[in-house]
Design a protein around this nucleic acid. Structure first.
Lengths: 225, 225, 225, 225
DNA sequence: AATGAATGAGCCTTCATTCAT
DNA sequence: AATGAATGAAGGCTCATTCAT
């Protein structure tokens, strides 16, 4: 990407007026469109500005550099996905563990509003920038919170999850989804794929629960995020 | 970015002589070193040629473009890892399912000869090029073969794996390892991380086996690669 | 020249402001100067940009590639020459056929503002690019128009010219001039050379006129551009 | 072409043995084929050597540089064309001026064994190298000789031709043919085109003859090559 | 005589970013 | 706040040519 600076966050100006907010939204939307159509190769700041209908200078008024724009898009979609999951969990008819897991998996599979190419490009770019951590942090928190909620519910046997367990829980399913996105696997949105992901996660959680008595009682060393 | 051609493989000349083979090896090794020290940003064809002690022209004699070199490095390491796994399975003292899984997981974790930065860079680049499929194909074949071997062993209950199961099996564990590499997680090489990955895979395999009687008997629709 | 693309015209941005127009003019002028001094070998985009006093990026802002710049220069000079011929025909004291022909020949000989090396380089490059047609089209049109004007004048015997006649008329004289330029013949600007060219063209026109009665009367098959 | 040296002639070794002569012929033929198929862009020394089935080193054994090879090809074809003209003039049934002119024109149109793309490429390259003079010299000599022969024949009125006349005579017709080749004009091999070229040349010669009495008597200043 | 691996100067081009208006 | 012309570092890549074997 030949970026000269790599400020993780680099917003120059917080938009305070309605017009400015619209401009920012237009730029982010333009970025998504460019990515969707032309992939990472077409994603140049000039191209985004042009499609957004603003000058390149205006783009830099709101996004300190190319990365900031990419990150903003990624964050926006990630937050939308998490919010979606939250809604799904809330309104879920099936309150069982499997029901909850399925709701989460399904939402993650269908994230990014169906813009697969854009999603792929964003994932590629995020990974290429080494910004994966940033974006995964909220996911981990979310899962930890969900896990804690489940674990603390009356009849649950789910213990507090270790750092490694949390990591694997969030990265394995998401990693598989991600791989399917990057490889453009046709079965990404199939029921079979979803079923297997759910099976894997549920099986893993089951194994964790089953291991509890042997491994430990309530342990202060465990992370309870 | 701005790649003009994307030939998956782009070797120009097959080295027929000992001297040429050495040159090729030197170039690939130089690439790994450059990547290890300076990451993707430092990975320029000129830099690689210089470190390899050959002219840029010589580099292009053997690698059609920058990508071909990257791919060659990735392939070499991937094959080395698979071979390593093969050896590990062969000489494994513990022939149990968990023993086998652990051998595979451990090898994947320690792949790329411990050059983590180089590994990260290669993964980033491969993903950014959308070349993930190419590299994962042999892994999937390998796992399918291993799965088939296990499944056909006398007392095994492991059925033939479906396409989706195969995918998830190979990508979830590898996806988690990959994420740990990209995020430079400190626990990557820890015993705890390995344990959890093994637990996840074993649990998933157990769930697959448990599901067989209900789902289906021997089914010709299943992939038995 | 190792050109990868061959877009006949490849202007990136239409200059809308006075400053931009000046920049473009400066670049084209610089190109002519570089060509005049160092020939085709010295004609590199970086050299042109430097002489023009702009950055290489600016050059590419207005000319999609090296070729586009070359073509722009060629077009500019070609159009200047045609305009010059137009003025010469207009103000010509000698309205005879020979007078007109001489005016045209003389202007073509002295085209390109006397910059013979630049002219040679441009011709070479244009031919090497296979772009000769593009540049000759307006000349053919011009000659056709002139021929038609002459032919339709009261006492003229000049018939409408066929495609082949038009072609030969425009290419033979110009071809001889071009050859003299490329071969750097010392007599290029001599009176004797001009005289002979005029003689050739006039003789050919005379032959065409003489042939009319035998060949055909007014014939709709003939091109009257 | 980025040539570093430009030795007009640069043969390294005169082949004295049959095998060597075959090799040289194979290389020249390969050059013609490469040119015919891929144009100037494909004409690299390595490509020619490969097609000729020899190593690049061998190519350089016989041709000092790329130019020498190009020139050799051009010469070979040019000489073939002149020889062809000679034969045509010899066996010509029509001994009139027009008959002779037509024989010459026709041969020039059909030169290069019908390999139009190769011819075009050679012309482009020759012009781009500024080697036009070299190749045209024999043509001029030939025409001068032919003119002298005609002029000295009993009833002929053709005077010795001046340098400029010779030049125009050879370059105008050939220039028109050349332009048709470069522009890939479809009528290149048409009867109409040939007719007009003949008409032009004959008309010009007629004008020269007609001018003799007024201009000069036998003049020592005239070139009688 | 032939081979072909190696050379390397240097070209074209991209695109993130700045700043005067 | 917005504009957009201008910047320029930097990188991928070509190909004629050499020379040790």
């Amino acid at each position: 990407m030949a970026t000269r600076r790599q400020p993780v966050e680099n917003k120059r100006r917080i938009p305070r007026q309605a017009r400015a907010a619209e401009t920012v939204a237009a730029i982010v939307e333009a970025a998504a469109q460019i990515l969707e159509r032309g992939g990472l190769a077409a994603f140049t700041t000039n191209a985004v500005a042009e499609r957004a209908g603003v000058s390149i200078g205006t783009l830099y008024q709101y996004f300190g550099d190319k990365n900031a724009l990419l990150l903003a898009l990624a964050r926006q979609e990630m937050e939308a996905a998490l919010a979606e999951i939250g809604r799904a969990l809330q309104g879920e008819v099936d309150p069982s563990l499997e029901g909850r897991v399925r709701a989460m998996v399904r939402t993650m599979i269908h994230a990014f509003r169906g813009r697969q190419r854009a999603r792929k490009a964003v994932v590629q770019a995020i990974l290429a920038q080494g910004l994966g951590i940033e974006l995964m942090a909220p996911v981990a928190s979310f899962i930890a919170a969900a896990g804690a909620a489940v674990g603390s519910s009356p009849g649950s046997m789910l213990p507090a999850l270790s750092r490694e367990q949390l990591f694997i829980l969030s990265r394995s399913a998401l990693g598989a989804i991600r791989a399917a996105v990057l490889e453009e696997q046709p079965f990404l949105r199939s029921r079979g794929f979803e079923d297997e992901l759910v099976r894997m996660v549920v099986a893993y959680l089951g194994a964790i629960i089953a291991a509890v008595p042997r491994d430990l009682g309530p342990d202060p060393g465990r992370t309870r995020v």
